[in-house]
C-alpha cells in the first residue's frame, strides 16, 4: 500500500502509529491518505477542505467536535448535558465488561459519550445541534445518547429555536439491550413535542447510519439531508447478503440510492452544508 512506503521515508516524529490510526477515523498527523482514492494529502490542506478529499471529493468521516466547530459561528457554542455518563443497567459483560469498554472509549477520544449536544448560532440564527461521535463505541445509542438528544430537543423548545441532528451510528447499543431499544421510542416521542411547538427538526445523515438510529431519529426529520455517498440503512449490508444470498447492487444504501427511493430531500456537499441549513431553517422558522 502506498501509505506504507511513504511512512517509511518520513522522519519518525511525523510518522503515524498505525494502531492508533485504526481507532480514529479522524485524520491525525501531517499526511493523510484518502480512504477512498488513497491519494496522499497534506493534513492542513485536508482540514481546510473540511476533510473532503480534494482529489476524489470523498467525504471523510469526522468527529462530533469538528462538526460543531464547522457549524457554529465563530466556533462558539454552549454544551448541553455534557457531564452525562452511561449507566451499566444490566451489568453487561462479553469478552470485556461494558464498564471497561466505556472507560476505554472515554480515554481513547476524550469524550464522555457518543453524542455532543450544543446550543449556539449559525449564520446569526439560534439553533440547538446534536452530533453523534462515531469513534465512541461506533456511535451506538444507549441511554445517554437518548438523554442528550432529548435534552437538546427540550432546549430547542425552551429557546424556541430549530433543532438539527448529525447522525452517524452503528445503531442501538447492544450492552444496554432493551434500554437502548427504548431510546428509539424516547427520541421519536420528543420529536412530536418539538413539532407541537412548530419548531423544525432537520436530520443530517452522515456516513454511516444503521439499525435503531436509522429507524428512529435519523429518518424523522422535517427535512432529511445526506452528505454525498453516506451509507444509511436499517440492516447492515453483511446481514442482508447473508439473508438473501445475492450480491448487493453498486451504490446500495448510499445517499444517491436513498434520494432515488424517496427517503431523503437532498444531498448536500459538506462545504455547502452550513449555508444550506441556515437557509432552510430561515424558511421554516420565523
Amino acid at each position: 500500500m502506498a501509505k506504507g512506503w511513504f511512512n517509511k521515508i518520513l522522519p519518525s516524529f511525523v510518522r503515524r502509529d498505525s494502531s492508533n490510526e485504526k481507532k480514529s477515523p479522524v485524520p491525525q498527523g501531517l499526511w493523510q491518505s484518502c480512504p477512498n482514492c488513497k491519494e496522499i494529502i497534506y493534513g492542513p490542506d485536508l482540514e481546510f477542505n473540511l476533510f473532503v478529499c480534494p482529489n476524489c471529493d470523498h467525504h471523510i468521516r469526522i468527529g462530533a467536535r469538528h462538526r460543531l466547530s464547522y457549524l457554529f459561528d465563530e466556533d462558539s457554542y454552549e454544551e448541553i448535558s455534557s457531564k452525562l455518563e452511561a449507566k451499566d443497567w444490566l451489568s453487561f459483560k462479553d469478552s470485556k465488561k461494558y464498564k471497561d469498554r466505556l472507560s476505554e472509549a472515554q480515554s481513547n477520544i476524550d469524550e464522555k459519550e457518543a453524542m455532543i449536544s450544543a446550543f449556539g448560532k449559525i449564520n446569526g440564527k439560534e439553533v440547538v445541534v446534536s452530533a453523534f461521535e462515531f469513534r465512541f463505541m461506533g456511535g451506538s445509542m444507549g441511554s445517554v445518547v437518548g438523554q442528550k438528544f432529548i435534552d437538546a430537543a427540550n432546549k430547542a423548545i425552551e429557546m424556541k429555536c430549530p433543532f438539527i441532528c448529525f447522525s452517524t451510528s452503528g445503531g442501538a447499543r447492544m450492552q444496554e439491550s432493551l434500554f437502548s431499544l427504548f431510546q428509539m421510542a424516547r427520541t421519536s416521542a420528543v420529536l412530536n413535542t418539538l413539532k407541537e411547538n412548530k419548531l423544525p427538526y432537520i436530520s443530517v445523515l452522515t456516513d454511516p447510519i444503521f439499525g435503531g438510529v436509522a429507524a428512529s431519529l435519523a429518518m424523522l426529520g422535517d427535512i432529511n439531508i445526506a452528505e454525498p455517498k453516506a451509507q444509511v440503512g436499517f440492516a447492515g449490508p453483511r446481514v442482508i447478503e447473508d439473508t438473501v444470498r445475492v450480491k448487493l447492487p453498486e451504490g446500495f444504501q448510499r445517499s444517491e440510492f436513498l434520494l432515488n427511493h424517496g427517503m431523503i430531500d437532498m444531498i448536500v456537499h459538506r462545504s455547502e452544508l452550513k449555508d444550506k441549513l441556515s437557509g432552510l431553517i430561515s424558511k421554516l422558522h420565523k
Binding site: 428512529s216 429518518m219 436499517f234 427517503m263
Partner: peptide, 20 residues
C-alpha cells in the same frame, strides 16, 4: 426483514414513523 427490497422501500422510515 433484512432484505434489499426492505431497504428500497424504506424500512427505517416505516419503523420510525410508527414509533412517532
Amino acid at each position: 426483514y433484512p432484505g434489499i427490497e426492505s431497504e428500497e422501500r424504506g424500512m427505517s422510515e416505516a419503523i420510525a414513523k410508527n414509533l412517532s
